[in-house]
Computed example of a mutant assay.
Amino acid sequence: MKPQDLISGKSSLWIFGYGSLVWKPDFKYKRSQVGFIKGYKRRFWHGDNFHRGSDELPGRVVTLIEDDDASTWGVAFEVSGSQVEESLRYLNVRETVRGGYVTKTVDFFPDGEGGSPVPALVYIATSDNALYLGPASPEEIGAQIAVCRGKTGHNLEYLLRLAEFMRSSCPDVEDHHLFSIEAVALNVVSYLMAAQ
């Protein structure tokens, strides 16, 4: 389903971010809210040969994997009026330019509001994407992230910013996958610096 099909006739839209969007949305929005979606887990299973890696050394960024027992915390952005079309046009380039992404509508549960969930649009990299790397151990993922960089910067920065978001905005949530990879990557970087 195309994003445009999801918003026909709507004057506003929520967009859920679970990776770099949580700290760098780069589109105008009316308001943002920390919260979570159910039925998905965040995993560093997607490759990036542009922003956080190269063709020779692809970095790793997050995507969502379906899991009935899981939930993923992030930020939803409400866009309205002309922001709807502008944000979708921007995200279609940022998120789907390399293909292998799908858009879905999910229920977003705002943190601390105790109200009803709101429908939100989310972009998910699938295994059909040529850059999809799939599962690996925290040691393998962390070591890969520690040494990769792309046009936007170091892959490690992406990892650390995501971990910082979780600690500051969702302090009671334990994201074992994220934090175990962070620990490995930091150990690798410390080892490499000591070896110089």
Rank of each mutant, 00 (worst) to 15 (best):
W14F: 04
L178D: 04
K28M: 12
D67R: 11
W45P: 00
S168H: 09
G115V: 08
E164S: 08
G35N: 09
V102S: 04
L160K: 07
E95M: 00
P110F: 12
N49D: 15
N49R: 14
A76I: 00
S116T: 13
T63P: 12
D55T: 14
T103Q: 03
R42H: 05
L57D: 04
L160G: 11
T72W: 09
H154P: 13
L57I: 11
K24T: 08
L64G: 00
E66Q: 14
L178K: 09
N129G: 12
V75S: 02
G142L: 06
T126C: 09
E85L: 12
F109I: 15
P3A: 03
V173M: 07
L57T: 06
S137C: 03
H51T: 08
D48R: 06
D55Y: 11
E85Q: 13
G19T: 05
I124Q: 10
I141H: 08
K2T: 12
P135D: 15
T126E: 02
D172E: 15
R43H: 11
W45V: 00
I145K: 04
L159Q: 02
H51A: 13
D175S: 09
K41Y: 07
I181D: 01
G74Y: 06
V79K: 01
L57E: 14
K151H: 12
W45L: 01
S54N: 06
G100L: 00
N49E: 15
I141K: 07
A120Q: 04
E139D: 15
Q196A: 07
S32H: 00
G99T: 08
S12Y: 03
